[in-house]
């Protein structure tokens, strides 16, 4: 079993322990991840006041017996995880993604991870044998010697001046398809701090609309993209409070999930304009990109 599926399993288990998933739901989802029915039942049974240290080996065992057989004679290079599960992420209210232009190397691991997460969630059939970065909501862009990580900054308009405190993209959406899910609501697995999401049933897509991105690009950044299959809007949900991109980033503190007061528009900037500023900051030269 790979790391991602193992982590997903732990997330499910966590949900089960918190009572957000029924035992039946847990078993169904765990078996979908490749865990045998027996193992899933065993795992589900463990929730009953079994102390965590005992659950870890049980899970590792289950993983080992249900992992797909290696196809070569070589042992699988990444052994099934045997360590204790990562501590459950606590809700992180007021947190946001910030990148550090000095530390980020532009390696794209964040985008690959984000893309894989969303394509598997939205189009599992169409994307079962492809990895496509177009599904990623976070896109590092390279301007030769500087890299700019482009992602939604969670801007809010100023009510006293601009008439609303909605996000600009939400405000111009004719369908009200971009929504802010309040704290404590939303889908399982998300840690409960509010997040932005797109109701794909309502979104008209770029072919008919695209006002959200147009408004974003004109005055803020370029925080929205469109999926390559239905051309509907995609926006960073910050994984509901525990972003996968931050966890996969190989560079210490290059991409962080940190408290940013309330209004992300302090940080929103068009990629190219930001790159020009980074040139001034980092290299003491002006480059007109």
């Amino acid at each position: 079993m790979d790391q991602a599926r193992a982590e997903k399993l732990w997330e499910l288990h966590h949900e089960l322990e918190r009572g957000r998933l029924s035992r039946r739901q847990f078993i169904r989802m765990a078996t979908a991840l490749g865990v045998s029915l027996t193992a899933a039942e065993a795992l589900a049974g463990c929730q009953k006041a079994t102390p965590a240290p005992t659950t870890a080996p049980t899970q590792a065992q289950a993983v080992a017996t249900t992992a797909p057989q290696p196809t070569s004679a070589q042992p699988a290079p990444t052994a099934a995880p045997t360590q204790a599960p990562p501590a459950a992420a606590e809700p992180k209210e007021g947190y946001m993604l910030r990148f550090d232009g000095y530390r980020c190397t532009g390696c794209l691991l964040c985008a690959v991870t984000c893309a894989e997460k969303w394509q598997a969630e939205l189009f599992p059939e169409q994307t079962k044998d492809v990895v496509n970065l177009e599904f990623s909501r976070i896109r590092p862009m390279r301007f030769q010697y500087v890299d700019v990580v482009n992602v939604c900054n969670y801007c809010k308009l100023e009510e006293w001046a601009e008439g609303t405190k909605e996000a600009p993209c939400m405000s111009v959406c004719p369908q009200k398809a971009i929504k802010f899910v309040p704290k404590g609501e939303g889908k399982p697995g998300y840690t409960g701090y509010g997040y932005k999401t797109v109701d794909r049933d309502l979104c008209l897509g770029l072919d008919a609309c695209g006002r959200c991105l147009e408004a974003c690009e004109q005055q803020f950044g370029s925080g929205i993209s469109f999926d390559p299959i239905e051309h509907k809007a995609q926006v960073c949900t910050m994984c509901g409070g525990d972003p996968a991109c931050v966890k996969v980033c190989p560079e210490p503190e290059a991409l962080q999930f940190v408290p940013v007061v309330v209004n992300g528009r302090s940080f929103a900037f068009q990629p190219e304009a930001y790159a020009e500023l980074l040139y001034m900051k980092m290299f003491n030269v002006r480059r007109d990109l």
Binding site: R139, M141, R142, F143, N150, L157, A161, E162, G163, T164, P168, S171, G210, L213, E214, A215, E217, Q218, Q219, G221, S222, S225, Q270, P271, E272
Partner: peptide, 19 residues
């Protein structure tokens, strides 16, 4: 919204900032 549009009217530049 009216107040926003009054401050910063739509620039009619379309989309095209990704690189």
């Amino acid at each position: 919204p009216e107040k926003w549009a009054a401050l910063h009217p739509a620039a009619k530049k379309g989309i095209g900032a990704k690189r």
